[in-house]
Write a protein that binds this DNA or RNA. Structure first.
Length: 314
DNA sequence: GGCGGAATAT
DNA sequence: AATATTCCGC
């Protein structure tokens, strides 16, 4: 079925040229500026806090504990809106659902996702408390509800790359990646699909480095491939060589859920379109043109819907 | 049965 | 082109 196709177009014909600049990523303001995002390599929390969450450097355990810790965090945040706000001083997190389908208010969505009209979700609490589109009301489980297409923002991708890099090619499998990325609502399938493509990209890169600017994906180009990933993933021998751990991933973004943010369809699928995306910032993909959004007319930028059940768990 | 990965599909 | 879904071997 092609429901989401009709229901969701991420991409509108960008007949803009002059008008597309207004799709400002308002979340950029709150962001630590992508490069400032805490690298996976460094601890995000103090040792005390880590121990409080029983996070140990053990390989098998780390994952679970971290997962648990992050769940606690999420639960705590959700249960305490005030805290949520305070927390958001640094970063206001949102679920992956937020980044799924999200376009500005300009386009009309007759089928689904017109929730922006029907309900205002402007306040932070509402924003990250399960406000969802009508399609999920009848099905609170949101399990069977189809999720809108995930948009891999440069930030999201960056986190992905970091996690993969720190896991090492060998251990970088969808489920693990998903867990370590700790993006609410992110599914294993999402990651698997992205991983597949990323691998192809890596493979392509090794063959012809330098061809990157013109043909390769801009998204992937936005985050440099860590050296650890460039090498042959063989690494049969453990212990050294590639500096990455086959073992305990230090500290994922456990308590620092990524802030998946709304992303406006920037696909360009015009007939005969030149396929070149973004807005011409090859060197600086992060650079967004900040424009006067004082007149921003979309009530809320995210169709927020915190997971009603457990998105990640099975 | 779930998971990972390639092959398809949309 | 970007994601999603299906298919298939562990």
């Amino acid at each position: 079925m092609t429901e989401y196709e009709t229901g969701v177009h991420l991409d509108e014909d960008e007949n803009d040229d002059a008008g597309n600049d207004d799709r400002v990523h308002e979340w950029e303001l709150g962001l630590p500026a992508d490069d400032d995002l805490t690298p996976l390599s460094q601890a995000l929390i103090s040792p005390e806090l880590a121990s409080a969450f029983s996070i140990t450097p053990e390989p098998s355990r780390t994952l679970l504990d971290v997962n648990r810790a992050s769940k606690s965090t999420l639960a705590a945040l959700r249960g305490n809106s005030a805290l949520s706000q305070g927390f958001s001083t640094n970063n206001n997190f949102k679920s992956a659902e937020s980044i799924r389908h999200s376009m500005d208010a300009e386009q009309e969505e007759p089928n689904r996702y017109d929730s922006r009209k029907s309900q205002r979700i402007e306040s932070p609490e509402e924003a990250d408390s399960a406000v969802r589109a009508d399609n999920s009301v009848d099905d609170p489980s949101a399990r069977t509800a189809k999720r809108p297409r995930l948009v891999w923002t440069p930030q999201l991708h960056k986190r992905f790359v970091e996690v993969v890099a720190h896991l090492g090619i060998k251990n970088a499998v969808p489920k693990t990646i998903m867990q370590l990325m700790n993006v609410e609502g992110l599914t294993r399938e999402n990651v698997a699909s992205h991983l597949q493509k990323y691998r192809l990209y890596l493979k392509r890169m090794q063959g012809l480095p330098g061809e990157d600017l013109s043909s390769s994906d801009q998204l992937f180009a936005s985050t440099p491939v860590p050296q650890s990933l460039r090498e042959n993933g063989a690494g049969t021998h453990s212990g050294h060589g590639n500096g990455h751990i086959p073992v305990p991933v230090t500290m994922p973004y456990g308590a620092t859920p990524i802030m998946p943010m709304p992303v406006y369809g920037m696909s360009h699928q015009g007939p005969g379109g030149n396929g070149l995306g973004y807005h011409g910032f090859e060197s600086n993909p992060y650079m967004v043109q900040q424009r006067d959004w004082s007149g921003n007319r979309y009530g809320q930028s995210v169709v927020s819907r915190t997971h009603p059940a457990g998105p990640n768990e099975k």
